[in-house]
Each structure stands twice: as C-alpha cells, then as structure tokens.
Design a protein around this nucleic acid. Sequence first.
DNA 1: AAGCTCTCCTGATGGC
DNA 2: TGCCATCAGGAGAGCT
Length: 286
Amino acid sequence: MPELPEVEVVRRGLERWAAHRTVADAEVLHPRAVRRHLAGPDDFAHRLKGHRIGTPSRRGKYLWLPLTDTDQSVLAHLGMSGQLLVQPHAAPDEKHLRIRIRFADTLGTELRFVDQRTFGGLSLHDNTPDGLPDVIAHIARDPLDPLFDDEAFHQALRRKRSTIKRALLDQSLISGVGNIYADEALWRARIHYDRPTATFTRPRTAELLGHVRDVMNAALAVGGTSFDSLYVNVNGESGYFDRSLDAYGREGLPCKRCGTPMRRRLWMNRSSYFCPKCQRAPRVSS
DNA sequence: AAGCTCTCCTGATGGC
DNA sequence: TGCCATCAGGAGAGCT
C-alpha cells in the first residue's frame, strides 16, 4: 500500500531511470488505468508521443512527470497496488500490465504501469502556475514538504469537529499519510485514533507531526514498506520497513512499549491497530 | 456545508 | 474440491 515514503522511492527511481528521456509511444492496455484522463486512452497516448520527460515531482501520494516544452504533466497515482517499473524491452509482460511507455533512445528499457486492483492510474493535465497538475490543486502539502505549515494544520484541527485519524487521512489537510503511517504515528505519539481534533493543544499537534515525519523518514531510509509484491521500487525491489512496524498488522502481539496485546478495530471500512493501554480511548462525549 | 458512507477492483484466504 | 464471504484500502462521488 503505497503511501508517501513508497511514492517518494518510486519518484527517485523515475528521476534516475526515466527523466530526460523522450517518449516514442505509449500503449494503454487497460482503459481503466487512464480513466482520470477524460479524453480517453487514444488521446492520452497521442499527447505523450514525442515529448521529453522532465524531473519527476511529488506531493503526498501523487507524483507527476512534467513534459518539457509544454505546460502539462503526466500525473500518476499508485492506488492500492500500482507499480511504475523500468523494465528491459525483453522482459515478459506482467500479468497486470496496464500501460507501456517506450522511449526514443537506445537504453533498452521501457516504463510500465502495472496495477492489480486498478485503483491507480495515469492521466495528463495542465499545470497550475506553480507547476502542479490542476486536478490535484486541492491536495495539501505533505509533512516532508519544507513549506508545510504546521500552525495552519493545528488551526485546522482545532476548527474541525472530527477525530484525529480521520484528519490524518484527509489529503486536503495533510497529504501522504495512509492507514499504515497513521497508525504508526499515533502509536508513537500515544494517541487514540478517535481523539477529537478539537482537543489538540499546540504542543500535542507538534508532537504528532514530529512522529509522522520521523516514521516517514525512517521508512524512506529503508526503501518503504512492502508486505507482499504489491509495492516495489522501479527496479522491482521491496522495501524493508515492514520489519520495523510497531502497530500496523500487530493484532494480539505485545505492545513494544508496555507488552499489552495490541488490538484491531474495524473503522472507516479499514483496520486500526493500537495499544489499549498506551493509547487510551477518549472520554465518550454525549 | 462539513462530515461521513459508499463504491470502485482483484486476489489471497478461510470456513463449510 | 469447490464455492462463497471476507478482507485489503485511496479517493472522490454522493448523501445527510
């Protein structure tokens, strides 16, 4: 499940292996992979052809490849299971290969978008004046962005009548955090996922943001989190952070701080893992 | 109108 | 053995 660290690992791979190459042609093998490109698969392929890829950028879980000499970018979201792979031409097609991009050079590799669950996709969009694809203008800066505004985030929490994990997953408040890193950061901060956002003091918000950044940087340093083959870097290699997870996926195992068995609660159509002792449930409001 | 629920999708897994 | 239900969950549409 690619979140910010995994997407950043992919972005770095693209910067090394795909940037500054010119597209020879693009082939869409599954229309759902370009569903966000409203003009359709043929238009997508046609518009890429002959253009050179600039330096890949990222905000939260979105990454994009600017097309130099245009004001457009190829936007990518990996969804649940999307992969961007740089593969030799001769490598056999992956079972879930959705899009192939060939280059007009002799490096012998092509860019492939592979996606089992088809929640991800590629699309082409105009850039806003600050170089961001227009359709993601509503996505907030992420916590590793130097321009992320901690104070504005705190004020937004105070204004909301919601709960903290919901807020962490709200990409218009803070981007790049998904279910795994939300649970990890909350465990580190000893905060229950259902704590009302309006109860956060400035120091508490600062502490939580610190943990979000720490856990993401730690994951980034070891290539991200891979539970299975669904997340890999552009060369098909897994990350190692799954071995360092303190909360996610640890139902019934002892809390690494206090030994209490970790719990899992179904919440928002997904699982929340937490320590019932370290992360006390908030007082029920009536 | 903000907050929340639902839905899209495929494959692994488990129960009977 | 086979069949069905469940689970994984990002993000936006749609409902209240």
